[in-house]
Amino acid sequence: MTSPFDAGARFVLAVDTATSAVQAAVVEIDGDELFLASFRRLIDGRGHVERLAPFIEECLAEAGKTRADIGAVVAGVGPGPFTGLRVGMVTAAAYADGAGIPVYGVCSLDGIGGNTRGTALVATDARRKEIYWAVYQNGERVGEPQVGKPAELPDTGADYALGEGAAKYAAELKIPAEPDAVYPDPVKLVELAAPRIRAGAPTEQLTPLYLRRPDAKPVDQR
C-alpha cells in the first residue's frame, strides 16, 4: 500500500475515548514536525457516542479541511472503561473504512506518558476503585499496562504520578501525584503512529487493551 501521505495528504484524524475525556483532533504532519490543526475535548464519561462524531465534523471544519484531506486515522486503544473506549475505536475504524484510508492504534496511556520526563507513573481511572497504569522512563513505556488498586501497586520506582487516576487516588499512591488530570495528547498519539503513517503501513484491526475479562463466568466454571 502506498501512503496517502506520498500523494500530498498531510492531515491525520486522531480520536481517543479511553478516559472520561471525549477527544477528537486533526493533526498536520509536515516533514518531521507535527501541528495541532484543530481539537475538541469534553470531560463527559457517559457522552462518547453523542459527542464524538460531531467533534470530528467540527474539527474538520475548524481546520478548514474536507474528508479528502485526511490521509489516516489514529485511535487510542486503551486501556480504558470498555463502553466509552469502544465508541472511539469503532468510530476510528469505521471512519477509516468509510474514507478508504488506514487506521492505526496507539496505547492511550502512551499519549500521556510519552510527554513525561524522568520516571513517571501514568494512571487513568479504571472505575471500581482501580486504575490502569504504566511506568515511563523519559517518555518510554516500561512493560505492559496494568490494572489494579492504587494502594496495592508494586514498587514502580516512579518519582511522581499523573493522569486522571493519579489525581483521583493521590492519597493512596505512595508518590506525589499531579493534582490536575492529564489526558492523552492527540499530537503525541499521532507522533507515535507517525512511522507507520509515513511508511504507508497496512491498516490495522484495532484491538482494545481490555486488561480485564468480562465478569460473567462460563456455565462449566461455576
Partner: peptide, 20 residues
C-alpha cells in the same frame, strides 16, 4: 443493550461523516 447499541451507532455515525 446500551453498550452493544453504542458500537453500531458509533460505527454508523462514522461511516456517515466519512462519506457524507
Amino acid at each position: 443493550l446500551a453498550g452493544a447499541l453504542m458500537v453500531g451507532v458509533g460505527a454508523a455515525k462514522a461511516y456517515s461523516i466519512a462519506t457524507g
